[in-house]
Each structure stands twice: as structure tokens, then as C-alpha cells.
Design a protein around this nucleic acid. Structure first.
Length: 199
DNA sequence: CTGCGGATCCGCT
DNA sequence: GCGGATCCGCAGG
């Protein structure tokens, strides 16, 4: 069943990031259904989380959508090249977000391969926040899309992810066959800035 | 108006 | 392991 606004509007963004593991993300772009199972997410908390775009509490062209009630898409361009897809959570005015970092492809694989310019399924298909958006056809045009609608949405298939498989906070992920690259190389603590790899 | 740096990925060494 | 690609949001003057 489709996730509802009640799911997205809960106050604990880390818990939502955790709960999103094992859920399914779908798009229906130009009549083509594509989707996959979520295996890695990352929580961004509104105030006092220096890695979060809304952490200063400012309302700008890019961050305005973050202040809407949970259940809308925040998509933005990074490095002039990749679109990243976030789910806005919490109540209106509480600008939390969850970045979707990794998917296990399940639906519309031929179309996703086409969009990615690949010929066979591998970790190159959807193991990374900038890769899965390309596979799903998500662009910055989808900024603000209602996730309870029929363009981009999430489903609960009743699958549970055992706690011992989960690495957590604020980045949460599970290991699984075929997408080893989904798991991280760098972390930050919730509330901190990014730790630059080499700079 | 200008300048800077980024929630990334890929290819080359 | 490292640099480059290639936009744009945002801050500062």
C-alpha cells in the first residue's frame, strides 16, 4: 500500500529514514513504471544540523519546499550534473528531509538501463543518489511533487528489515547482494557538517 | 553582479 | 586515490 502523509509527517526524521529501508520507490514518467526497493537513506534535520540545506532557518528559492508539510519531493541539482531526490518530512515549518541514497532495482529495469546507458544490471544502475534519480527519470522539474500522487510515490510491501542488518544514524543502510557500492565511504554525525574526504 | 563551492560520479594513474 | 566536469543557489559587495 502507498505511504500516506501520516507516515511522512511524523516528527523523528531519523526514524523515518530507518523506516524507509525496505519500502519501494516508484515513478510513472510518460507512462513508464520504474522503481526499486530502498536500501540506503540519510536523515537531514532542520535546525542545528549543519549539513541540512535548511539549517539556518532561511526561506529561499531552493529551500522553500522544505518548509511544506511532509510528503513532497525536494529535488535539486548538484555539481551541475546530478539530481538528488529527497523526501520532505515532519509538519509544515519543520524543514526535515530524507535523502534516498540507494535502491535495489525491481520494476522497469529495461527502461532504467536505457536511461542510464547500461546494458546489464549492476551496482552502477541505482547504487547512489545521483544514479537512482537518473534511472527513475527524476529531474529538478519534480521539485515539489506530491508523493501521495501518481507520478512519484512510495509503497509498503509489508517487508521488514531486521534491526541487526541496519547501519544507522543519520545515514542508514543495509547490505545486500548486488549493490555493494550502496554503502558509504564517509559519514557525518547528525548535527555536524560533512567531513570532507580530502580537501 | 560576481565568485565560490557543493548531500556526486567517472575515468585515469 | 585524485582531479575534472558543469551548473546554480546563495552570500557578499
Amino acid at each position: 500500500m502507498k505511504l500516506t502523509s501520516e507516515f511522512y509527517q511524523r516528527p523523528d526524521v531519523v526514524q523515518i529514514a530507518r523506516d524507509l529501508l525496505g519500502k519501494y520507490l516508484y515513478t510513472n514518467i510518460n507512462g513508464v513504471l520504474t522503481g526499486g526497493r530502498i536500501v540506503e537513506t540519510e536523515a537531514y534535520a532542520h535546525l542545528n544540523d549543519q549539513a541540512c540545506h535548511s539549517h539556518l532557518g532561511r526561506y529561499t528559492a531552493r529551500t522553500s519546499i522544505m518548509y511544506e508539510a511532509g510528503g513532497v519531493a525536494y529535488a535539486y541539482l548538484i555539481y551541475g550534473r546530478y539530481t538528488l531526490f529527497n523526501i520532505i518530512t515532519n509538519k509544515a515549518g519543520k524543514a526535515d528531509a530524507v535523502l534516498i541514497r540507494g535502491l535495489e532495482p525491481t520494476e522497469g529495469i529495461p527502461e532504467m538501463l536505457l536511461r542510464r546507458g547500461l546494458t546489464s544490471v549492476s551496482s552502477k544502475l541505482t547504487a547512489g543518489p545521483g544514479l537512482l534519480t537518473q534511472a527513475l527519470g527524476i529531474t529538478t522539474k519534480h521539485y515539489g511533487t506530491d508523493l501521495t500522487g501518481n507520478l512519484i510515490w512510495l509503497e509498503d510491501h509489508g517487508e521488514s528489515v531486521p534491526e541487526e542488518m541496519v547501519r544507522t544514524s543519520p545515514r542508514v543502510g543495509i547490505d545486500y547482494a548486488g549493490l555493494d557500492a550502496a554503502l558509504p565511504w564517509r559519514f557525518r554525525e547528525l548535527g555536524s557538517k560533512w567531513t570532507s574526504p580530502a580537501k
